[in-house]
Design a protein around this nucleic acid. Sequence first.
DNA 1: TAGATTGTTAATCGATTAACAATC
DNA 2: TAGATTGTTAATCGATTAACAATC
Lengths: 204, 204
Amino acid sequence: MGVLPKTTVARLPRYLRYLDDLPRQTETVSSEDIAQGAGVSAALVRKDLSLLGAAGRRGIGYDLHRLEAVISRVLGLGAKLAVAIVGAGHLGTALANYAGFKVRGFEIAGIYDIHPARVGTVSGPVQVRHLDWLAEDMANEQYQIGIIATPANAAQTVGDLMVAAGIRSILNFAPAVIRLPEAVTLRQVDLAIELQILSFHLAQ
Amino acid sequence: MGVLPKTTVARLPRYLRYLDDLPRQTETVSSEDIAQGAGVSAALVRKDLSLLGAAGRRGIGYDLHRLEAVISRVLGLGAKLAVAIVGAGHLGTALANYAGFKVRGFEIAGIYDIHPARVGTVSGPVQVRHLDWLAEDMANEQYQIGIIATPANAAQTVGDLMVAAGIRSILNFAPAVIRLPEAVTLRQVDLAIELQILSFHLAQ
DNA sequence: TAGATTGTTAATCGATTAACAATC
DNA sequence: TAGATTGTTAATCGATTAACAATC
């Protein structure tokens, strides 16, 4: 299948979300259907899916269940993925409780903080543990994804800790640029930046 | 200044974040400094800033405070912006309490829900009010930005309500594509999709 | 002057769209 | 067969990078 463009990868989960929400008895979907459901053009859907070798049928469309299987496989969503959150403040706690993760196959398997008052409290499906345990816990939990939900000034340290513990995919919510080894995949969500971009459009 | 590319607009808040974190006494910064701090190339920084008419000085760099002022103005960050959140679950509550918004000049001025048990509870700086009050409250609060933090099936309805109330910039955290009038700026943050993109890279 | 750094152009790269032959 | 829809190519569009003259 070769290398998929970043933009294609970013759209696949949106296609999958649409497909998953379709009535169970649906048998085929067209690129036009998916385009509507995901908010992109039909040509782009066909292009993306053809990169996956997604076996549509001309005149008919794509087999729903086959297509879901292909996209899931490409995204590596076969088994449940274990997630560790660092930072048990408001945001970390909300993420630990976020129902949308579970539905999509992610399990919050651990949440960590350095604040003694937070350690031991229950946050979502697990108890908050002291950050010092992260590396050790990896042996049992095999975290595959780390989420940084700390203040900006802790983000780099926490990222380094995660990498040292063996985590290779990290989602950073702290408003700071952090630098990690090439081999680690890092994504950044900055909530204030989202609002600032909206502000720009208000100002136009 | 003409029209700024979307990509430029998305980077400006990152530049500003870096500049804001610099020691107060700093007088000038180079495109290379900003590039490091924001995680992009220096050529791109210069290109972006030149689109703003940002008056750097060859051989010297950019005047820090002047540059901050220019970017802030372009982003429309002069006055505090009032934000209304709809959905007082875990995520909405966390957003209401998110310190990063206040620092960047956003004020959570209202939070709404339809769940009677949540109405009246305190969430961040304000009490949760019933969603029915949203339109009426606009008269006092002049919300400029709306945040949707509801389940997916409520997102379209809430978006329509916000637009009817006069809100023209919306940040949607619900995992659903919603359709709003052209004139409304809509941004989408889907937390599960971020994890799915990380999952793809794990699978490679 | 010599060194540093911008501003801008042209080249390159990458992504999206339009169009349509293939084919179900 | 006629209508629908894919898969793919070429054209277009847009964004980034490289390079360097201008100039502080």
